[in-house]
Amino acid sequence: MLRCAKAGALAAALFPLLAQAQEPIPGAGPFFLTVQIGGGIGTVAVGGGYRLARQQLEPEVLVGFVPRRLAGGPALGIITLKTTYIPFSPKLGQHLRVSPLTVGGMLNYTLGRRFFLTSQSTGRYPTKGYYWWSSAVRVGAFVGPRLTYVGAAAQGWRRTSAYAELSTNDLYLVSLLSNKTLSPAEILTLGLGAKISR
């Protein structure tokens, strides 16, 4: 939490004008719930988090699910740690806030014996680093816009956001960097989601 606050302070130092222009969006508490489809963290993922750094930083935990039909076998479960940074959210009318650009990073773990943390942890391979990467853990980064609706004070869930994200992961990035004929667009993944808070 301290580190997140520091990151927020760092962001505020890097974008002083934006940070001054940014006022915490009123009316809703720091806790939020999230539902997301796609984005490499599950066909559907649900979770929640706690807003930090003048509500510009949203660390959260999500649990994702990929059904049998898309997993091609037993369903996949994915646990994701994700943080979104929202540098600015200008007002659009009385109730709307538009964040044209949010950025963030994520780390996820795919459950199941098919996936290894390190290849040596399986005990199947003769040498350390037989496969240099982890098939269970992916590191990713994303950018995307967001639209927030702030309702009247009496409303239960006062604040609702809808967002889209274009993301990629470490292995796709390695593939892109080692090939000239792969285009950046080919390594992107779309995620769509919503966040609510009271």
């Binding site: 489809i37 796609g38 984005g39 490499g40 963290i41 599950g42 066909t43 994702g64 990929v66 898309l70 997993a71 091609g72 076998g73 996949l76 994915i78 795919t110 996936f115 098939s135 992916r138 992961n169 292995l171 796709y172 992107l188 993944t189 779309l190 995620g191 769509l192």
Partner: peptide, 14 residues
């Protein structure tokens, strides 16, 4: 939507 390759459930999807 899930079918379109951009909206990917997981890089491990089949």
């Amino acid at each position: 939507l899930m079918g379109c390759s951009l909206l990917e459930s997981s890089p491990n999807q089949a």
